[in-house]
Design a protein around this nucleic acid. Structure first.
Length: 276
DNA sequence: CTCAGTGTTCAGTG
DNA sequence: TCACTGAACACTGA
């Protein structure tokens, strides 16, 4: 479930469990896809015995800041999750659930000196675990755009960036070098609330429309983070609750028909009656 | 059996 | 160089 709010939830979990503690034991599963540029054994060596200073996040990337580098980067991919014993995780759209401990599909497990534990799962192996000496100064994080939760540009700067982009507004919102952390459902939610046709070219939007997109982006991300990415607690009027599945005749909260398009290779849910 | 999918990367094109 | 597009990646659950 990983867009910005879900990753922020994972970051908070890692902070709560790990910050100030020392990693006493590490098990990294043998997986040469999820471990990117580092062997599982080297990953274990880098973490064992280290103290966690903080858990940080930029967009969908999160990392543990250790007392000395290299530092582990965690990207959840489409199906990755972070768990602590007893934590519920989040119900995945795909229905993958974790039960027992460690959970199914665990790729990395950490033990701390106070008895705490963390497990990173990744069923479909599109997530990545990496080591970086300078997490924010080198790729992938150095290539990311602004984080809309903590570094949303002021309207003038937002408009200037947007005006340089010729792609459909939906594709630009999904571009991590524009806004880091926005994924498919947030992009659709923002455009639905801003009443913008997702196919329109970003640079063609009026100043008022761009201000509106910015404001809705800020609100959607803020509200989702405020309820800890628990889907059931998102406002009832959000498209989020009704966008899934492509059955004919699905409607938004006010009865407007939801339609589906493919933009930028992703399914886009939108309401033609409202979005212009 | 087939296919969609809350994501990223990379080759190819203009 | 840059912006952009589409395909590839991987694999579970429906």
């Amino acid at each position: 479930m990983p867009e910005l709010p879900e990753v922020e939830r994972s970051r908070k979990l890692a902070e709560r469990v790990g910050a100030g503690r020392t990693i006493t034991r590490v098990t990294a599963e043998n997986d040469d896809i999820v471990y990117d540029g580092v062997t599982p054994r080297a990953f274990e060596r880098a973490l064992r015995g280290r103290q966690v200073m903080a858990a940080r996040r930029h967009g969908k990337q999160m990392w543990l800041e250790l007392d000395r580098g290299p530092h582990p980067l965690i990207h959840l991919g489409m199906t990755g999750q972070l768990y602590a014993p007893g934590s519920t995780g989040l119900a995945l759209e795909s229905g993958i659930k974790a039960e027992g401990w460690p959970p199914r599909f665990t790729k990395l497990q950490l033990w701390f000196d106070d008895g705490g534990e963390l497990a990173f799962t990744n069923a479909r192996r599109l997530g990545r675990l990496r080591l970086r000496d300078d997490p924010t100064g080198e790729p992938p994080i150095s290539k990311l755009g602004f984080d809309p939760l903590v570094a949303l540009p002021r309207p003038a700067a937002f408009i200037e960036r947007a005006r340089r982009r010729r792609s459909p507004v939906k594709a630009v919102l999904l571009d991590q070098s524009f806004a880091a952390g926005v994924g498919n459902w947030i992009a659709d939610e923002v455009l639905y609330q801003a009443r913008i046709d997702p196919r329109r070219r970003m640079a063609d939007l009026s100043e008022a429309e761009l201000r509106n997109v910015r404001a809705k982006l800020k609100n959607v991300v803020r509200q989702a983070v405020d309820v800890d990415a628990e889907n059931d607690r998102y406002p009832s009027g959000w498209l989020f609750h009704r966008r899934w599945g492509k059955q004919a005749g699905i409607c938004d909260a006010k009865g407007h028909t939801i339609e589906h398009l493919e933009i930028g290779g992703r399914t886009t849910a939108w309401v033609p009656a409202l979005q212009r």
